[in-house]
């Protein structure tokens, strides 16, 4: 018994010595830790106002507690089914179309023989990533303008009717998704392309000798090589399924397409900061976070079951 206590003491002493001797390393971490505490952890206790009828003057400890009233109001509200449906639609589209395309692009780029040409294509494909959301959204609006937008010019040139893209709610998801692909496909493909560079060339040679076709080589050698990367990226993507890029959606919205474009995060902004309904807005945000976490954990669990690899 005594010996055990002594051992424990010794361990603790060693640990303390280890920490103390490296104190400088902790000082190096200090700015990051302070920032995270003050700007990421401190606001977390502000989540409490989701369960209150929060008044700024009375503060968090002086405001009345209302239990789940804000959530009940959310679930009963006119907008709730709309924002939930829109958020899920936009993120599912992103997952189904936007996620696989960069992988396909990386596989195709890998098949290009001319290295200079390939580098050129890659350079061009990264460029849109650097365009700001504000600029991106106005380019979209101008391209789709029914008055003089180039897309409608082409449609009328082939004898079609002009389409009012930005005015119709049903177009919104496609506009958001296709422009997102245009902007992000090159950039997202880099990580897969990098993973492809680690394919063992001996494997490819062996496949050549066995008479494998190019397609077979992609399917049986290249694709399996990047699957772990794909899995990690997929789970990360699932974790943010309800946090669609709100900046872009917000900037593309107008009164006419709101039924198809209002999502949870833009709703949080409008209710919270434009209408100053702090408690309700926080409740909506909290709902978003909880759903995100549940999806992330289930995606990770599923991935561990199916592919034996996960994020955590």
């Amino acid at each position: 018994m005594k010996r055990k206590a002594r051992q424990q003491y010794k361990q603790r002493y060693n640990f303390r010595k280890k920490v103390l001797s490296k104190w400088q390393l902790y000082v190096l971490m200090l700015p990051a830790v302070l920032y995270t505490l003050l700007f990421s952890y401190k606001p977390m206790y502000g989540i409490l106002i989701a369960f209150q009828d929060f008044r700024v003057r009375r503060g968090i400890w002086g405001s009345d507690w209302v239990g789940l009233a804000n959530f009940e109001r959310l679930f009963d509200s006119y907008w709730f089914p709309i924002i939930l449906k829109n958020t899920l639609t936009l993120s599912t589209l992103g997952l189904v179309i936007g996620f696989p395309l960069p992988i396909i692009l990386a596989l195709l780029l890998n098949e290009l023989k001319n290295e200079k040409y390939r580098t050129f294509v890659q350079t061009v494909s990264y460029m849109p990533h650097f365009i700001s959301t504000v600029v991106m959204c106005s380019i979209i609006t101008m391209f789709l303008s029914p008055a003089n937008g180039v897309i409608n010019q082409i449609i009328t040139f082939f004898g079609g009717e002009k389409l009012y893209f930005m005015q119709e709610a049903s177009w919104f998801k496609w506009i958001n998704e296709i422009s997102g692909i245009w902007q992000g496909i090159g950039w997202s493909s880099i990580i897969y392309y990098a993973a492809l560079s680690s394919v063992d060339s001996a494997l490819l040679e062996a496949a050549d000798i066995d008479g494998a076709s190019r397609l077979q080589k992609i399917w049986y050698i290249n694709l399996p090589e990047i699957i772990p990367t794909v899995v990690v990226m997929f789970i990360l993507r699932c974790g943010s399924i309800l946090s669609v890029g709100y900046e872009k959606v917000y900037l593309l919205q107008n009164d006419m397409n709101l039924i198809g474009s209002e999502i949870i995060s833009t709703y949080v902004y409008k209710v919270g900061l434009e209408q100053s309904d702090f408690s309700f807005s926080t409740a909506v945000g909290l709902f978003n976070t909880v759903v995100n976490c549940v999806i992330l954990i289930s995606a990770n669990w599923l991935s561990k079951k199916v592919t034996k690899s996960g994020l955590f």
Binding site: F15, K18, V19, K22, L25, M29, A32, V33, T36, L38, F39, S40, Y41, K42, P43, M44, Y45, G46, I47, I49, V56, G239, S265, V268, Y269, G272, L273, F278, S281, T282, G285, L286, N288, T289, N292, C293, L296
Partner: peptide, 29 residues
Amino acid sequence: DLAGSKFFMIFFMITMYIGGGLIPSYLNI
């Protein structure tokens, strides 16, 4: 050789997924 590096990694990574949200951050600032 940094003691507690795993703790700190979790400390940081939690904030990637969980946050106060817009209004609590605004009130904090």
